[in-house]
Design a protein around this nucleic acid. Structure first.
Lengths: 174, 174
DNA sequence: ACCTGAACACCGTTCAAGT
DNA sequence: ACCTGAACACCGTTCAAGT
């Protein structure tokens, strides 16, 4: 006689994401995830290959969320940058994980499609990919450094972000 | 009667850095480090508080190396960017760790001093910090995304880097 | 003063036995 | 068909005992 299913993959991933934001990747233990979904650790292996696969799922869910936010914005370069940064401030650990978990950053390609459209309008088809890379590299680096506490010399960080945005737009106008 | 010292902190950090490049942070186990320096794991705790402290030392040694490379370059913005990227290609795991290990990115401030000098010459004292942040954010983000495999849409990555460099310099000229 | 074996807590994972 | 207790391997860390 079959045992009723006591959890789902979606629940497991959601639990892992909560644990991630609570205490970083080290906080995602199979025991802690199992506790949150009301099951014993071995049961998790019915839905997920192993811990590494679960962490990849968490990273991919985060990329999905980022993509949805970008698509929901007005899709100007400036707004895309601000929305991206706002997401990272909301879910700093998730943001970090995307570029740390091997294999997760790869799915960023689709998520940043709106950036590619915005740069195409700005610099034309020919240079749109290079321009999108310049723009996403800057935004990603800025946020990573900000989250890592790498900006130690004072100054207004928000203003530095707006400065970067403005100068990038200047640089991209031919 | 005192036992002779069988290793040193420098040796331990060097061993940990080798293990890091060999297999990522997970490869830095106290057992593996102890094996490499010819000692038993408990002895490591005479030189290092715990594994986390060791990993921070590894990240800080990496930042020191980056700083030395930057200072040894011709210190133009373009060369600083290229030297920074070349270092990351040589020691990808070390580079990643600097922005992942909590507390390590903080020491980047001093290492990137040459960037601040270069931007000061370019945009003046007033805007030099914002400009340095724009520049280091772009370079750091580009390299992080490159190492993470985030550039999936083809195109010439080296050319994209040079494109970014050129447009940033344009954007920073007033 | 440093080094070590033994021990402990904790974690990921497997598997046979339950329903 | 999913769930679980028991077991195993592995890892970080402590500590008393050795020299």
């Amino acid at each position: 006689m079959p045992t009723p299913e006591r959890t789902t993959l979606a629940e497991i991933v959601a639990a892992a994401r909560e644990l991630l934001e609570l205490g970083g990747p080290a906080h995602i233990t199979m025991q802690a995830v199992a506790d949150r979904v009301g099951v014993r650790p071995p049961s998790l292996y019915k839905r997920v290959r192993d811990r590494e696969a679960l962490i990849l799922l968490v990273a991919e869910a985060t990329v999905e969320d980022i993509g949805a936010r970008l698509r929901a914005s007005d899709r100007t370069l400036a707004e895309l940058a601000r929305v991206y940064r706002a997401f990272a401030h909301e879910r700093p650990e998730g943001f970090r994980l995307v570029f740390a978990a091997s294999g997760a950053a790869e799915s960023m390609g689709r998520a940043v499609a709106p950036v590619l459209e915005a740069t195409r309008a700005l610099v034309g088809e020919e240079r749109s990919l290079d321009a999108a890379r310049l723009f996403t590299a800057w935004a990603t680096g800025f946020i990573s450094m900000e989250l890592a506490g790498a900006f130690r010399l004072g100054g207004d960080i928000d203003a530095a972000f707006e400065f970067g945005l403005e100068r990038l737009e200047v640089g991209l106008h031919t």
